[in-house]
Design a protein around this nucleic acid. Structure first.
Ligand SMILES: [Mn+2]
Ligand SMILES: [Mn+2]
Length: 575
DNA sequence: ACCCATCACGCATAT
DNA sequence: ATCGTTAAAG
DNA sequence: ATATGCGTGATGCTTTAACGA
């Protein structure tokens, strides 16, 4: 472990979470979740009040009218799975011992409702297996106890008991009413508006407070709005609904419905907006699944509306396998005219040659330079092949690490820290981001071009190791999409920055800048460093493993830039 | 980084 | 009773 | 043999409680 650099808030350490200043465990306020939710509500209302529906505004009013215990309970319930609960099972001593009063209050505001007759399907979820056996003991076979719960549930459903019967049994046994929370839909909208996405949640507040994750303290300009209109909010939610539908159909292997789903997707223009990319991603996923279902026509329809790789690649393959060589070639040509990314360009080159051959033409593809290769025969080991190879190379190199993408990415993140977190309008919309919103889009470099170019020029002249270590120390522990703090040691950064020529690093960083999404992976397994021999990157391949396409692209680039790299093909000694 | 992305693995195919 | 899996919670 | 495509599985805050088997 390196010594404790300046760490702004707190750091996660093995054995628990501690505040750096006093090393005592972080204590949260007993009602931390309520406070977090209220911050969320207040922020959203201030920033997006005009986009909220009457129902959503009414919710805020109802919620705020409740006492602490009721509000806290509501937040507790909405952060749990499902919407139905048995009140006698709830236990939140930090609110009150008896939750009757808070529940009544929530009910009076319409935030929860009571039901004495939930019906069999719900009971199957709300009851433990033992309780179900007890409830229906007299009508179940004596060996029902041996069934698993899902099978038991199935059996009970097949008994086709009428609802009167079910409710009578239930009410004889259970003296309370079960409750349903009415909130998740509104809460979902509020969370979406607060975070700008659906995957972050109140958990992010907690992890931040606990110091499990800490975030750069960029300024949030709440005047900038990610959603300009209610229609945009609804479109986001609609895309989420359809995506969920897709995953449901996938679970049930419902081919028909999935074919029909294609027609429900909107036809979007290539606008490079995040929303359009969400639609495209769904189209690609749907298309891929339809291919697996042997539905090429539907798959082609799904891909046809997508502006995201690999939609055209998949389409060409489909057309080819259907014998539509003309159309396949045509699509290849449009890919050649206006390729979406390097991966697509590579594919197009290979496929065009293949297709032309199929049509009888005599064409040859220029073979890319073969990377320097060597064969290693190593003693069989339990460890991963990369580790075994690293051990071998340590005979000649002072330091060899299995770093994969983590080293080059970390150096990228450290070198361009200030530019990544630069206050560009609309880049940051919530306090828990590890990168600007446009980090992976082509605009990242374009909108920060002069700052990034200046920084790279500066680094070319500077004592690189010193500058990168200063960045490491200044930002240690802060979430950055490019820097995995667990994976990189300070010493390692220092050595790498001293030995690798800055021109080589800048060349790699520029390739990342060219397409940050695609080029953050595919880097070689090993980095070997030595004060005498310099450095070398080594991609290790065990028996049966082949170079991946993104690895080949990096290797090609390294060869163009005269960056030292090789591929080690490992086989094992006979025992 | 929107139920992700990433890597290596193991298998089946085509050349 | 005990163990593995999953949800809840900090 | 070699290349290529495809699907799969582990991994990603940690600790504790509840549940099913
Ligand atoms: Mn690797
Ligand atoms: Mn490898």
């Amino acid at each position: 472990m390196p010594c404790w650099p300046v760490c702004r808030v707190s750091c996660a350490m093995p054995g628990g979470v501690f505040n750096v200043s006093d090393m005592a465990p972080v204590e949260l306020h007993p009602l931390y979740y309520l406070h977090n939710f209220e911050v969320l509500c207040d922020t959203v209302e201030a920033q997006y009040g005009d986009l909220l529906t009457a129902q959503e505004l009414q919710f805020l009013q109802d919620f705020r009218a409740c006492e602490d215990a009721a509000r806290g309970l509501f937040v507790r319930l909405t952060s749990r799975r499902g919407t139905w609960f048995r009140p006698e099972k709830l236990n939140y001593p930090e609110l009150t011992e008896n939750l009757t009063v808070p529940l009544e209050q929530l009910a009076s505001r319409g935030l929860v409702s009571f039901t004495a007759d939930p019906g069999l399907e719900l009971l199957l979820e709300l009851c433990l297996k033992g309780e179900l056996l007890q409830l229906f003991a007299d009508i179940l076979a004596p060996d029902a106890r041996k069934l698993r719960k899902p099978e038991l549930a199935e059996q009970l459903l097949q008994l086709a008991l009428d609802s009167e019967e079910v409710n009578r049994r239930w009410q004889d046994w259970y003296t309370h009413s079960v409750i349903e929370v009415h909130g998740p839909a509104v809460v979902e909208v509020l969370q979406l508006l607060f975070f700008g996405n659906r995957r972050q949640s109140l958990t992010d507040f907690v992890l931040s407070d606990l110091g499990v994750a800490s975030y750069e303290s960029y300024a949030l300009d709440r005047r900038y709005r990610l959603f300009a209109s209610r229609a945009q909010v609804d479109e986001y939610l609609q895309a989420a609904v359809l995506r969920e539908q897709f995953y449901n159909l996938l679970e049930q292997d419902d081919v028909e419905a999935m074919v029909a789903l294609v027609a429900l997707l909107p036809v979007t223009r290539s606008s490079h907006t995040p929303q359009q990319q969400r639609w495209d991603k769904l189209r690609n996923r749907l298309g891929r699944q339809l291919e697996r279902y042997q539905q090429p026509a539907a798959a082609l329809r799904a891909y046809a509306g997508s502006h995201m790789h690999p939609a055209r690649e998949r389409s060409v393959r489909l057309l080819e396998s259907q014998g539509e060589l003309e159309q396949a070639l045509e699509l290849c040509d449009s890919m050649a005219m206006d390729p979406w990314c390097e991966a697509e360009m590579d594919f197009q080159r290979r496929k065009s040659v293949q297709l032309a051959r199929k049509n009888g033409a005599a064409v040859t593809l220029l073979k890319p330079p073969v990377p320097i290769s060597e064969r290693l025969v190593l003693a069989p080991t339990e460890r991963r092949v990369e580790e075994a190879a690293a051990a071998h190379y340590r005979q000649h190199w002072q330091w060899v690490g299995h770093v994969e993408n983590s080293m080059v990415n970390a150096l990228f993140g450290l070198a361009l820290w200030e530019q990544i977190f630069a206050e560009v309008a609309g880049a940051f919309v919530n306090p828990f981001q590890s990168a600007p919103l446009d980090m992976y889009s082509g605009t990242f470099y374009r909108t920060r071009r002069s700052a990034i170019d200046a920084r790279l020029d500066e680094l070319a002249q500077a004592d690189l190791a010193a500058v990168l270590l200063a960045s490491y120390d200044a930002h240690f522990g802060i979430s950055n999409r490019w820097v995995s703090w667990r994976g990189i040691e300070r010493e390692m950064i220092a050595t790498a920055a001293q030995i690798i020529p800055v021109t080589h690093l800048i060349a790699m960083w520029r390739r990342i800048l060219f397409d940050p999404q695609a080029n953050r992976s595919g880097l070689p397994d090993l980095l070997a460093l030595d004060p005498e021999h310099g450095y070398c990157m080594i991609e290790v391949k065990g028996p049966g493993d082949q170079l991946q396409l993104n690895q080949k692209r990096w290797l090609r680039y390294f060869s163009e830039q005269d960056i030292p790299v090789k591929v080690a093909w490992v086989s094992w000694h006979d025992a």
